[in-house]
Computed example of a mutant assay.
Amino acid sequence: MASSADITRRQSIALVAGESSGDLLGSRLLAGVRERLPEVRLHGIGGEHMMAQGFASDWPMDKLTVRGLFEVIPRYREIKGIQDALRDKLLADRPDVFVGVDYPGFNLGLEEQLKKAGIPTIHFIGPQIWAWRGWRIKKIQRAVSHMLVIFPFEESIYRQAGVPVTYVGHPLAEVIPLQPDTRGARQRLDLNGPGRVVAILPGSRMSELKQNGAGFLAAARLLKQRDAQLQFVTPIGGDRQIAAFQEQIRQGGYEDLDISVIRGQSHSAMEAADAVLVASGTASLEVALYKKPMVISYKVNWASYQIMRHMAYQPWVGLPNILAREFLVPELLQHQATPEALADAMWFQLEDHAHQQRLARRFADMHQSLLRDTSRESANAVCEVIGARRR
């Protein structure tokens, strides 16, 4: 490890996060970096959580936020233009290290160019090559100086491929309490009715709301017919998304469900819930860390799904199931995600108490396996890369 005097002479770290989950993860890394390097300049692309750590975003993060193989096509020219402009800026500025926070489609291409030019690159959160993108390992070898991974089984994958790697734990395992306070969360959200609470999380992107929102709402109606006292809560991240979801409620005639649509507060909604209907992604892991029964669902553009389906080489999509290596919770994807199927699966999660207890035990074990001081571990790895370059 380089001395503190060596490291503190390094003045600049560049980072890119392309969506809200990456912004949160990036902020945890930056909190640790700030302790080690209080005067360092932090810049690139990020969101409000990273900016709270003194980060300067050279472009708005929402310019990059898009998901799906075909959904990106209309935005490709704009996103590629940002990538090229940022590359040129970084090649001129010569930061001491570049950290790509998730968002591999954008970051790996940028990292490859920077590493070739002699700028060390770190990728924080290994791309899910263990899920369906195994071919990416070759590009990772070219692009990444050091990989930071958040799941313990990933270390051996990258080590075998010759990519320096550090397991830093999952930041969410620190943020989310080991014991959820369901009653307190309901009080915070004014969910004071006598009925059980179902959280509905169709996704944070406009494309996700478009694909998942109507089906999730139709499933909620079917659940309400089985239990008239059910309470529904949906956390939504932005004004446009809230407006879009409320329009789906109006168009579908779901006003009678009296869904509590709240801005943000997704963790409180999960903590308050008896069961969660959630779009696949990081949110499903968050639900597991809150020890809640869930149904995982997802729909994407038909052509995107066909490509993804043929590239998959393991049976699971949801992170809790991937970590468990079994179907702990149901996954209803694409054409399987009918309102009837979603409602049936959710009803089981609400009604089977023995199943709920088994899930709580498995999710508690999962939580412990992911718990590390991620901020400190990731910051140490960043400083080690900077120090190695100086030596």
Results as ranks from 00 to 15, higher is better:
Asn301Val: 08
Ala345Val: 00
Leu328Gln: 10
Ile307Met: 04
Asp274Gln: 02
Trp59Gln: 07
Asp274Lys: 01
Cys383Ala: 09
Ala381Asp: 03
Lys80Cys: 05
Ala283Phe: 06
Ile262Asp: 05
Gly238His: 12
Asp258Tyr: 07
Ala228Lys: 00
Gly109Gln: 03
Phe55Cys: 00
Gly213Arg: 10
Asp102Thr: 04
Arg159Ile: 14
Ala131Trp: 04
Leu342Tyr: 13
Pro194Ile: 02
Val278Arg: 01
Asp102Met: 11
Asn301His: 11
Arg250Val: 14
Gln368Val: 14
Val168Met: 05
Leu209Cys: 04
Val300Met: 08
His43Val: 05
Gly81Glu: 15
Leu359Thr: 06
Arg226Cys: 13
Arg136Asn: 10
Gln357Pro: 11
Tyr290Leu: 12
Thr166Gly: 08
Leu189Tyr: 01
Arg142Leu: 13
Pro180Ala: 08
Pro320Tyr: 10
Arg9Pro: 14
Gln265Asp: 12
Pro152Lys: 13
Gln231Ile: 06
Gln306Asp: 06
Thr182Val: 10
Gly252Ser: 14
Ser266Asp: 14
Ile322Pro: 04
Ala303Cys: 04
Pro38Asp: 07
Pro95Asp: 05
Val276Asn: 00
Gln141Trp: 03
Val33Gly: 01
Gly134Glu: 02
His146Asn: 07
Tyr158Pro: 10
Lys116Val: 05
Val99Gln: 03
Phe151Val: 05
Ala345Cys: 01
Gly54Ile: 06
Ala279Leu: 05
Asp256Arg: 06
Gln231Thr: 14
Ala388Gly: 08
Gly215Lys: 15
Gln368Ser: 08
His170Thr: 04
Arg372Tyr: 09
Ser20Ala: 14
Ile73Ala: 11
